[in-house]
Design a protein around this nucleic acid. Structure first.
Lengths: 346, 346
DNA sequence: ATGAAAGCGCTAACAA
DNA sequence: TTGTTAGCGCTTTCAT
């Protein structure tokens, strides 16, 4: 087995107290005025005896684990995978581990996972929630467990949160399309209907169209359940083309939706952007070199991760967070590629 | 704060011993012949007082954490992201959390991470290693820490491991291409040069070509360093086409490489499969509907994850693993799509 | 069928 | 400048 030697062992073999050793180990030697040479002696012995602190004992004693939880709908989604990677890096550089949890957009599962992590005494959590309102998190905040919501947030919530300008991004997409004279739009979203990012994107898009006097016909506002995206998109797109009534442009609200639409549009031999232009929310590596390459609203994944981690760390370290930094909203970019440029109209 | 009530509290308020409560909580009531009604009483009280066991204390006492580590080169790579998701599901269903670590193919970082996790007393680890040989893992195995290697393994190693028939997959790819009369091949790999999967793929491919009397010119065996894939692929492909000496087919050894080649082939306006056919190792969602769709050797990600987790669980539970199940090799499939079918030649 | 008590390895008042 | 001591909350012999 490993780590057989304990702090007590090294104290004894040195003829000093455990306190002394503990202090030195935790770098509090100077602060407590322990003689330099004594410190050296201790450090030396530690090396010599190959001592490994028992992190469990320490965690138990202090109630900390140096672990944070990351909760998202699906870690294998490119967006969250990249977020995870970024957060993992920050965490690692600060001595933290990150445990991942995928909720599959199931509210009960998410709650269970959060409770579980809380029981496990993670030091904090970063959460992209699937819940419908902030009540659960208001409680969490009240309980004092450090956490920050990312991506999906609620207005006026107590928890720290970092999101993206979804409304603004959607408006950019709409304006870009409108400028080309496009008037017939379809929006492809996921359900459930309470996901803030999705709703903000729809809202921003519809609003901008509205200002141009345009409405999206209900049948062209697609809501595909999270776990049935493929099927629903397929059926809907087929029906569009069977009925012969076809939108001029589609706005797909996440990378999965974009990919899936691309897939079935290809199967239906619909040419992009001629027959239908398409712009998606959230960029993905390969959108840059597909034929046609696909236009997107791009989210600043690095920034989201960085801000979230910083906000979390502050809470863990009991630093106060200025009110105005409590809720950060990051800007997005529009990346215009081939899929959204109508050849004739512009 | 949370979990203020302790086991002692509920014992006291019930006028029984901590032992009793502990036994009941851990389902050892019957085994120790504790009266049914007493057990009920305890359970009742637990609910009433809203008792939450302190997992840290328990873990400390028992030396377990109900956590497993997952170590891969990069969690944001689609292949590993999907592995992670699968393992997370298995883990969750068995009461385990999984902490993720990305090594960036840096051996020292990987070792550090493994040591770190070991200190943290994770109950086991699943590792896709970047190391050059099995010595580190032989030690790990000797230390008794449950672990299983996935994806990349070493011959004759002591650790349990699950991999894929890389040689076989490469042979499939080679045969498929050869059958079409193709004779000029390029292979695109990553470095470092000791990654078993990559080497097996190269070996299988070269061997099969060799049997047909064909060799890969050294200049067409590309080795792109893990962190410079984009740059190296770009430069190499450019030089191919500048010099005018062009392979008829490319075999790209992981999904990243495949994507990157696709990207620069597109930029160079090289038509696939006419000018160059391409087949990749490892499937990715969008390969199915790009234009052209891209042929691949597909790995059974679900199976890899499942086998790995089972093997790990057995070790954690101290069950013995039959020698023949110690090292599992899973079959791969070839998925022939458009990118590898030469229109003229076949 | 139940309880007493020891102790896992560490930290932190409080003493000295 | 260093040591004593008392736990943190839980599990587990060993008694009874």
């Amino acid at each position: 087995m490993s780590g057989k030697v304990t702090l007590a062992d090294i104290a004894k073999s040195l003829g000093v107290s455990k306190t002394l050793v503990s202090l030195v180990i935790n770098g509090k030697g100077d602060a407590h005025g322990i003689r330099k040479e004594t410190q050296e002696k201790v450090l030396e012995k530690i090396r010599e005896m190959n001592y490994e602190p028992n992190v469990l004992a320490r965690g138990f004693r202090m109630g900390i684990t140096n672990t944070i939880g990351l909760i998202v709908s699906d870690i294998s989604n490119r967006f969250y995978a990249r977020i995870a990677r970024n957060i993992e890096d920050f965490a690692w550089n600060h001595g933290y581990n990150v445990v991942i949890c995928s909720t599959d957009e199931i509210i009960e599962k998410e709650k269970e996972q959060i409770r579980f992590l809380k029981e496990r005494k993670v030091d904090g959590m970063i959460i992209s929630t699937s819940q419908e309102n902030s009540s659960f998190f208001d409680e969490l905040a009240a309980s004092g467990l450090p956490h920050v919501l990312i991506d999906r947030t609620f207005k006026g919530m107590k928890s720290a949160n970092v999101s993206v300008d979804n409304v603004g991004g959607a408006r950019m997409a709409a304006r870009h399309l409108l400028k080309q004279g496009i008037r017939k739009f379809s929006v492809v979203a996921i359900s459930p209907d309470h996901i803030s990012t999705i709703n903000d994107r729809i809202m921003g898009f519809e609003k901008t169209l509205m200002e141009a006097g345009i409405k999206i016909p209900p049948k062209w506002l697609i809501r595909a359940p999270f776990d049935k995206i493929d099927e629903v998109v397929r059926v809907k797109l087929q029906s569009f083309y069977q009925e012969g009534d076809i939108p001029e442009a589609m706005f797909t609200l996440n990378n999965n939706l974009t990919s899936t639409c691309l897939k079935y549009l290809a199967k239906l031999s619909v040419s992009i952007p001629d027959e239908v232009a398409i712009i998606g929310f959230d960029d993905v590596f390969y959108f840059g070199f597909t034929k046609p390459s696909v236009s997107v609203i791009k989210q600043p994944i690095d920034l989201i991760s960085e801000q979230a981690f910083k906000l979390l760390l502050k809470q863990i370290n009991k630093e106060s967070i200025a009110k105005k930094h409590h809720s950060v909203v990051l800007p997005v970019d529009i990346i215009i590629r081939e899929s959204s440029i109508k050849p004739s109209k512009s």
